[in-house]
């Protein structure tokens, strides 16, 4: 049960990571996750994933519930679960959220869902860049563009 990134992510971001705002692996995860949720792109974890942490870092703890909330909204929409179906909604939330604050509030399924959107976001990036980014300014500019192109998130 942990946050996972694609094995090639560290290498792909090599030239632009290690300085603001992409200092840590969690920063890379966040950038991939946000794009994955925005583009509604979920992919199942395969073998090519590396675990790196099992809890949100201090930098991201204030936004933890928002990130998980975003994931819940995305999963409900993806699975076509009606908002009036209390039972299904509760069941789905119970499947993904543990409330265990030492483990990011997430169950194993919750991590899988979140990682799936992060993976989707990473692959979305790779499809929209000709090559691994060499220059942080150019990357952030293109990333900002990609985010705005994805438009509104799923309606639940």
């Amino acid at each position: 049960m942990a946050f996972k990134l694609h094995t090639e992510a560290r290498d792909w971001f090599k030239k632009i990571s290690g300085s603001e705002p992409l200092n840590t692996l969690f920063d890379l995860y966040h950038i991939c996750l946000t794009l994955g949720l925005a583009s509604k792109r979920f992919e199942s974890e395969g073998d090519s994933m590396d675990e790196f942490m099992d809890d949100f870092t201090i930098r991201y703890r204030p936004f933890q519930s928002l990130m998980i909330g975003g994931m819940i909204a995305a999963v409900l929409a993806r699975k076509g679960i009606s908002v009036s179906d209390r039972c299904s909604v509760a069941q789905e939330i119970g499947r993904m959220v543990s409330g265990d604050t030492t483990r990011g509030d997430l169950t194993a399924d919750g991590f899988r869902e979140l990682n799936g959107y992060a993976l989707g976001g990473f692959n979305y990036l790779r499809e929209n860049f000709d090559a691994p980014p060499q220059h942080a300014v150019w990357f952030l500019s293109r990333y900002s563009q990609l985010l705005s192109e994805t438009g509104a998130p799923p309606k639940i």
Binding site: L37, L66, G70, G151, P153
Partner: peptide, 25 residues
């Protein structure tokens, strides 16, 4: 760079549409 770094972790600033989605949730 520093200004971006300050706002970066907040998913609502990165992806403003999320505000509506979370509000609805």
């Amino acid at each position: 760079f520093h200004e971006i770094d300050k706002i970066f972790p907040n998913p609502l600033i990165l992806h403003p549409f999320l505000t509506k989605s979370l509000g609805e949730l």
